[in-house]
Design a binder for these strands. Sequence first.
DNA 1: ATAATATTGTTGTAAATGCAACATATTTTT
DNA 2: AAAAATATGTTGCATTTACAACAATATTAT
Lengths: 155, 155
Amino acid sequence: MKNCNKVHYTDSIYYEIEQTSRLMKKVVVQLFTRLAIDITMDEYAALDTVSVNAGICQRDLAKLILKDRANTGRILDSLEQKGFITRFIDTKNNRLVKKMGITESGLKELNMIDSKIESYLKSLTKKIAPEDVERVQETIKFYRLELEKVVQINI
Amino acid sequence: MKNCNKVHYTDSIYYEIEQTSRLMKKVVVQLFTRLAIDITMDEYAALDTVSVNAGICQRDLAKLILKDRANTGRILDSLEQKGFITRFIDTKNNRLVKKMGITESGLKELNMIDSKIESYLKSLTKKIAPEDVERVQETIKFYRLELEKVVQINI
DNA sequence: ATAATATTGTTGTAAATGCAACATATTTTT
DNA sequence: AAAAATATGTTGCATTTACAACAATATTAT
């Protein structure tokens, strides 16, 4: 008799999270397209992050959004070109850095997108008890912090 | 007074899952590199999926691994070239399709990788109660099935 | 029967991504 | 003081990815 109790990676929580993330990304991209939102998901996430971290520099933002410095710079180029953020040279620990902040126009865009997608995203979890959603979120966050301890970040 | 209760996308479970997935991918890629495993994570996931779905055709596999037909074909090209799967022409609903199966060498590689990474991956959740891990996995799976209902899959 | 549509896999292409290398400036080491 | 290392942002490149177009075949509609 063969070993039928084999543990498969594709049954693990790791793969489950990855698959869910991929699917979710598809859902949100399709939502953005349907709503004619003219920034990408990554730009939206970066804009939101900047809005709660006024005056952050590029490298620190890169660490938050888990992208490398190169692509973070490119995302910010796009957001700046669209007028949603402003960038300015400043110092951090005596070093010249590029800091940024959200503009009025960016804040308006952010609120517009939030209002457009909020109800739809909520509807996706409506069949799950709110306390379950919260518990899952807390557990995943704890797990993510564990991952941060062992991952090598080269940003 | 400004609205300090604003709900941010970056605080949502959607972003939490995406960030965790990104971080997890980094962790596993670094693990694969450290262990000198010579296939990619995607190839590994595909190989595992093939191992439990013997005789599956390419398009059906694409639906399982959530990649498009083009890239699924490319991943399989690589696995076939390395001798880990075999592909053969067959019919499904009277249509010519490319089916596949895992080879002896592929099964050996799969088991080798599993044995190498198992304990490490387990250690990442050792601080979380097993029942919590299971509950999270179930809730996410339920959520993923909700997503599958609304997403447009163009595979 | 002919035309239109659907299924499956491949090829081409443009965009996104990560990584290494570079430029500049500052800190630390020797 | 000179050299080495670090911090920050940008550029270039190779890989990955998604999407569209195509080729071949089978089914459905007219």
